[in-house]
Design a protein around this nucleic acid. Structure first.
Lengths: 214, 214
DNA sequence: TAGATTGTTAATCGATTAACAATC
DNA sequence: TAGATTGTTAATCGATTAACAATC
């Protein structure tokens, strides 16, 4: 059933969710696939098709009820309930994520930072006072705090070994990898957030266009 | 000529570049498309095809010379010369990026942060003492410092207006958007780095698998 | 030369889009 | 009812993969 869903659909669903929230905040109650498509630079038929994988959320003649669509998308994306998140690496990126309110808004609760640097142990971060915990205690804390998502925010050379240790924690169901390196996982889901690749993809575009003009 | 290159190729080229550097550091001199494919979980034919868009970098019978491949990829990706980068928004994400050494390693030099908060003006960030400058002076500073890449690291509601102002700066060739919102640009290239969407895509995967098991 | 691996073509696969009947 | 918009099928498009001749 789920095996037939094209890979790019999940990210577009998240895009729809974001847009639906904006539309709701502006006081709207209905949206057509056409308007959604214009706002997101997507074809309306693609939006209807994406949504139809999960059932019919719309009403012929009028469009999609925004409240119902929002709730449906949250069910599909799994954010109708909170997820406990642990960040490994209390460096620049780890700290920025811990303080990032957008996550909490989407029901992702960062409740622990793990670091190997003993000078950071025992301190806490941000207004929510997220504790920094020694990496040695990572697995037991993940168990104790029911952390299901691990975020890798350590330098590239440590990323795989951290991933291995996260996979040993039975509670961990998914990993988000910010380290600029490919990591290999088993029995957990993985998403990469690739900052350096985005920069390179950008200069590739700039560069190839400037060559075309010559 | 460049119009025939599939969209996903650019990101894979950046992936190859990262892997080639790792291989070089390990002391290797040659790599086959097969080995590269295994390391990146890609088919060898895809790697050969991707590279062949830009010319023949390999040698039949032996594979690709790593040094030559690295240089070729850097030429293609446009990182054979430095790019000056300005970050708009000196919040958590902007600061983390300013301190992120990975960028400098790839020839991206963050040389200015722009913020509207006057209490931050005049201060500087990190070991490279990157100055924080009022947003009002953004356009003139971009001109003065020859900044070609603008990074949007402000809250979603300000992202589009910052993008508009960046587009008014003649020097700006590309924008990297970290704000969780779709922005519209004209005459500049755009890449999105989407943290919240990655989290949602991850829980979508976790969630849909757990439903499948029921 | 024999073995290995590229570069490239052609076949396959999968995702996007157009079109339209269903229906609000 | 007439107009609008969905849900879905079929057609199109584009990217990936397999296969193999070229060649180091």
């Amino acid at each position: 059933m789920n095996s037939k869903i094209p890979a790019p659909v999940a990210k577009r669903l998240a895009l729809y969710h974001r847009c639906v929230i904006t539309l709701l905040e502006s006081g709207k109650e209905l949206v057509s696939s056409n308007e959604l498509g214009e706002r997101l630079s997507l074809k309306s038929s693609q939006i209807r098709k994406d949504l139809s994988y999960f059932g019919g959320f719309g009403k012929r003649g009028s469009g999609y009820n925004l409240n119902y669509l929002k709730e449906s998308l949250e069910n599909i994306l799994g954010i109708n309930r909170p997820w406990n998140v642990g960040i490994v690496g209390a460096g620049n990126i780890g700290m920025a994520l811990a303080n990032y309110e957008g996550l909490l808004r989407d029901n992702y609760r960062v409740i622990a930072l793990f670091d190997r640097n003993l000078s950071k142990w025992g301190t806490s971060v941000g207004s929510r006072r997220i504790p920094i915990i020694p990496i040695k205690e990572m697995c037991s804390k993940i168990e104790e705090l029911s952390i299901e998502i691990g975020v890798i925010a350590v330098p590239a050379e440590y990323a795989q070994s951290i991933a291995n240790r996260l996979m040993e924690c039975k509670k961990i169901k998914g990993i988000i990898n910010f380290a600029p390196v490919k990591i290999y996982v088993k029995n957990v889901d993985l998403e990469d957030v690739d900052i350096s690749i985005s920069f390179k993809a950008l200069t590739f575009k700039i560069w190839s266009e400037s060559l075309g003009k010559e």
